[in-house]
Design a protein around this nucleic acid. Structure first.
Lengths: 205, 205
DNA sequence: CTCTTTCTCTAGTGGTCGCTACAGAAAGAA
DNA sequence: TTCTTTCTGTAGCGACCACTAGAGAAAGAG
């Protein structure tokens, strides 16, 4: 591995430029963001962008990965760190309410909004697969909770996961439409009241 | 009013062409649909389109109005024809499950999906206002139900309306991502179980 | 028939899209 | 210094965008 690079050094910070691209794609979506938009917010010329990130689609793919391990990582953390499926989902939705309305970055979820009406089918498909993978993750987490008896045996994991995902995606849309954090927290709480063994006392942090 | 028109008659049916434009906007969104896409599916040339419908934005506005009184009219009907707010919302969500997955037309809701990442701010704003007006409608319906004692006095109409809208919009997204009618009906039923005075027996049609 | 009106068709407008050829600039290597 | 490597800036590529000028076609009015 070459620690010393040979030619002319890059005149910009790659991570910073990538984050700027992420914000722009997040705000305006894949097709709503032009390469000249990107070069402007990244502060570089088009040839530098293509040399550092490949073409627009490759850059977007990298942006999506980055989003998944940064702004969008709270979902995975909620499930990893909470002891029960119920608490995991409750935290997922509560944190989504805060994240989707954080004034420090664009509203809603990039994976949900950035490729909705996309002329490039591969891009739309890639985000759709990511969303459906998230639904499947939630479902398997719920199914595991049913298996251990944490949730009632008559619980339908697929339906409950689909419901959770729908609320999550609806919250993203609501955030885009101007809902406040408090608005979305109320939505999250109402969603949790639809869960089985829905004792109000359990959500106690 | 001139029943007899003077010049060369139009070579296409305006309503049919409008419906074709509606389907295309519904499927691919405002910016994802080009004027040449429209002329192709409508079976007419560009000058005919501009003469009959104005520019692309004007045509889209007319499409949105048409959607509201045709495919998207079930929401208003649900509230007009059901005796209680709860039954109105339950019917809204059940019919949305069917409508959003109907194989006879594109999936999901045009008002929700057709201008998500839109470069033209007026178009995005116009649909956003329409969505927020729907939330306000649901809220006032719920507030009226609280006032008459139909719903408990401690019900938060704004929160319950926002929750309903989020589920509705999430169902549209889920339909786009491949959920079946049965999937969405399960989501609708779960959403209704979050409602106050949530007796399972009430939904009896 | 001719005249007027309205639509349709061909062909093209200027503008923006994603992307790149090419020459020069800035670094290490020799 | 000179050579090689890599990045940067200008300038422009063909393709598509929304949109339209202008000529001809199809109807009623006279």
């Amino acid at each position: 591995m070459a620690t010393k690079q040979r030619g002319r050094p890059r005149s910009f910070d790659r991570e910073t430029a990538l984050e700027q691209a992420l914000r722009t794609f997040w705000e305006h979506g894949y097709e709503g963001t032009s390469v000249s938009d990107l070069t402007r917010v990244m502060g570089i010329g088009a040839p530098s962008l293509y040399a550092a990130f490949g073409d627009k689609r490759t850059l977007f793919d990298e942006v999506v990965v980055r989003y998944g391990v940064t702004h969008g990582a709270f979902g995975g953390r909620a499930f990893d760190e909470e002891p029960t499926a119920r608490r995991g989902v409750a935290r997922l939705l509560r944190e989504a309410a805060a994240e989707f309305t954080d004034p420090d970055h664009p509203r809603g979820c990039l994976v949900i909004t950035a490729a909705t009406n996309c002329t490039t089918p591969e891009v739309e498909e890639s985000l759709r697969e990511r969303r459906n993978a998230n639904v499947a993750d939630i479902e398997s987490r719920i199914a595991a909770a049913v298996a251990t008896g944490e949730l009632p045996a008559d619980t339908d994991p697929a339906a409950l996961a689909r419901f959770t995902a729908a609320v999550f995606q609806g919250m993203s849309q609501q955030a885009r439409d101007g809902a406040t954090r408090e608005d979305l927290e109320a939505v999250a709480d109402l969603a949790m009241s639809a869960w089985p063994e829905g004792s109000v006392a359990e959500n106690g942090d």
